[in-house]
Design a protein around this nucleic acid. Structure first.
Length: 437
RNA sequence: GUGGCCGUAGCUCAGUCCGGUUAGAGCGCCAGGUUGUGGCCCUGGAGGUCGGGGGUUCAAGUCCCCUCGGUCACCCCA
């Protein structure tokens, strides 16, 4: 016998367990996103968590997300694989692989992984919801996609959200613009930090949204994308703006919004939560990625989409105070003063009839069982003891909302045979009275 | 990857500067008050390797070193 205790484990750095009530809020948020997306004709896609490393390498060779932050490893058969750091690459890979009818409008909800130092609103395992549309070039599609996210934020009650909008031009525009930006910063190397000089080599556009204050003036004087836009790119952007105006979706043009992943073309956008007092206040972002399908071996296909950070939206909702306490959904708690067989049978019957029911295991005094009933949040307690069994009845006690039940005494005896039908009837009444459930 | 702050009960935290009896509080949990009635109240109880390891000392939650973890910020991003 050794006195050593077994090792105690805890969740890995940057990974968290989501327990109730947080799990209930998360579930509610995702459900609302699903409803919003379905209402606009989007269908769910569920790509795998693990992809060939190349799927992600193709889309972000110049980004930290891909070069430094991926969970990558060699699989048992020697394949280089990675946990997805974002959703778009996998979805586009699926599009190229299955060649669905276009336009392909999909939504998703899932977990991504990035090996970063955690901080508020940033975790190594984080959930996103989002949509992608492949195979359509219409600027009104950009409008639909952006508005969809906007309506979703409205639906969950968020008010302090800002939509930032920009365009990066078409492929050639972006290349010429990038060169111009590079030469601008190259001429001001002395004013750049060492880290920024490295960024200049890899992806000069990224310098535009640097947060370093001392570099602000160099950034201010950098060339603007507007001067590099081809007529068709400018026209596309104008129509996107006009569409958002028509729908009453407010936005702010941010010419330094270049976004993190380097597959973006033309329209880019980002949503920030102004109530969030954290450095990570971007709650969502997206844009067009017209070249991505081709980069992944498919035919040239236009694409656009966005991803929203579930964790950050929940933080923003908390900051705005729009998160309600999740309510108990339990109809009945069964208190059994006999040997437990009554609770076993009655909960079974109630559940089969579509009601929610719980009970306490291992018995306990009536006081203890009633306390459990109260804590469960159940609307009713069904009490069964020797007296009830002898009378072929149960005691039905209302635990909450006594006041609004005039004529409905707090406690009454109900024939055992009528219990399920009586409760089923009341349950449907109450659900009609409560519009927001 | 870099830096600041913080690790004491399930949770929120006193106690650490200036080392010294059995390490405390509130909330929560359990039981009793009410031999079949929850919430409120009263009484009692359980619950702690003081993150871990090493060192200094007669004596360490308290001082020193290392380490692990958390948190916030930078970088970057949802």
């Amino acid at each position: 016998m050794s006195g050593d205790r077994p090792q105690k484990f805890q969740s890995l750095t940057g990974m968290r367990d989501v327990l109730w009530p947080d799990s209930a809020r998360r579930r509610d948020l995702v459900d609302r996103f699903v409803a919003t997306s379905r209402a606009a004709g989007y269908r769910e896609v569920v790509p795998p968590l693990l992809e060939d490393l190349g799927v992600f390498e193709r889309v972000g060779e110049a980004t930290d997300v891909v070069t430094k932050e991926m969970y990558e490893f060699t699989d048992r058969d020697g394949t280089r694989v990675a946990l997805r750091p974002e959703m778009t690459a996998g979805v586009v890979r699926a599009f190229v692989q299955h060649k669905p009818l276009t336009p392909w409008k999909v939504f998703y909800a899932g977990t991504n992984f990035r090996h970063e130092r955690p901080q508020k609103g940033r975790y190594r395992s984080f959930d996103q919801v989002g949509v992608e549309v492949l195979g359509a070039d219409d600027p009104d599609l950009d409008v639909e996609v952006i508005a969809l996210a906007w309506y979703f934020f409205e639906a969950i009650g968020l008010r302090q959200v800002t939509l930032l909008l920009n365009t990066l031009g078409e492929h050639d525009d972006r290349v010429r613009y990038s060169e111009a930006v590079a030469s601008h910063f190259d001429a001001h190397r002395a004013e750049l930090s060492e880290a920024s000089l490295a960024t200049l080599e890899r992806n000069p556009l990224r310098l535009l949204d640097s947060k370093r204050r001392e570099e602000r003036s160099v950034i201010e004087t950098a060339p603007k994308i507007a001067e590099f836009l081809s007529p068709s790119a400018a026209e596309h952007f104008a129509r996107v703006k006009a569409g958002l105006d028509a729908l009453g979706v407010p936005y702010r043009i941010d010419e330094r919004l270049v976004r993190g992943l380097d597959y973006y073309r033309r329209t880019t956008f980002e949503f920030t939560a102004d109530a969030l007092d954290a450095a990570q206040n971007a709650i969502g972002g997206g844009g067009r990625y017209d070249g991505l399908a081709e980069d992944l071996g498919g035919k040239p296909t236009d694409g656009i989409g966005f991803a929203l950070g579930v964790d950050r939206i929940l933080l923003a909702a908390e900051a705005e105070g729009v998160l309600g306490e999740p309510e108990s959904n339990l109809d009945v708690f069964v208190v059994d003063l006999t040997d437990g067989s009554q609770a076993r049978d009655i909960t079974h019957e109630l559940r089969a009839a579509g009601l929610s029911a719980d009970r306490r295991f291992g018995g306990g005094s009536m006081k203890a069982q009633m306390r459990s009933a109260d804590r469960s949040g159940a609307l009713y307690a069904v009490i069964v003891g020797e007296d009830e069994v002898a009378a072929a009845a149960v005691t039905l006690r209302r635990l909450r909302d006594h006041s609004d039940t005039a004529g409905d005494s707090a406690q009454q005896s109900v024939p055992r045979s009528e219990l399920v039908a009586r409760l089923a009837a009341r349950s449907s009444e109450t659900s009609q009275v409560r519009p927001d459930e």
